[in-house]
Simulated assay, not measured.
Amino acid sequence: MRPADPEGTAEIGYVFAPDVAGRGYATEACRPLLALAFEELGVHRVMGRLDARNGASARVLERLGMRLEAHFVEDDWFKGEWTSTLVYAMLDREWRAGRPSLDSPTSR
């Protein structure tokens, strides 16, 4: 997680090797990071940006309770082609309202 502009906003991200994809590691790792951001650091908003073609990553952010805020069409030149970006986010009040229990089996 790294601070992002404006102040009070943080960005969450992850990269996993393809051979461990789909095992829930990203979701499992990000829940405590969201708790840290909102409960310990007092962050107002956490966002995640991803390539719009990355459906698996979008599902991770949705499982975490983040909502789709934006779809930027062909906004980034990456590996020789224009790609689109999705932006997901969660506010501190949204975290407090629907915060999953880190001990709950359904939160994994």
Rank of each mutant, 00 (worst) to 15 (best):
72 F>P: 11
47 M>W: 06
84 S>F: 00
66 M>E: 06
51 D>K: 03
5 D>H: 13
25 Y>D: 00
68 L>M: 11
59 R>M: 11
73 V>S: 07
92 D>W: 00
59 R>C: 07
57 S>H: 12
39 E>F: 02
37 A>H: 04
41 L>A: 11
37 A>T: 01
44 H>V: 04
61 L>W: 01
70 A>L: 10
96 R>N: 08
105 P>L: 12
97 A>V: 09
98 G>F: 05
14 Y>N: 03
64 L>T: 06
6 P>Q: 04
105 P>W: 10
85 T>S: 14
45 R>N: 10
26 A>G: 06
84 S>A: 12
81 E>L: 11
4 A>K: 13
59 R>Y: 00
95 W>S: 08
9 T>Y: 07
84 S>C: 00
13 G>S: 13
38 F>N: 05
81 E>H: 07
54 N>H: 12
52 A>R: 13
30 C>Y: 03
51 D>F: 08
87 V>T: 15
102 L>W: 12
45 R>F: 00
59 R>F: 01
4 A>E: 12
36 L>D: 06
6 P>D: 05
15 V>S: 14
12 I>S: 05
59 R>W: 05
65 G>Q: 07
17 A>I: 00
38 F>W: 12
31 R>F: 07
50 L>A: 03
26 A>R: 04
81 E>S: 14
73 V>K: 15
72 F>Y: 15
75 D>L: 00
51 D>W: 08
52 A>N: 08
47 M>N: 05
56 A>P: 12
16 F>P: 00
53 R>F: 05
98 G>H: 13
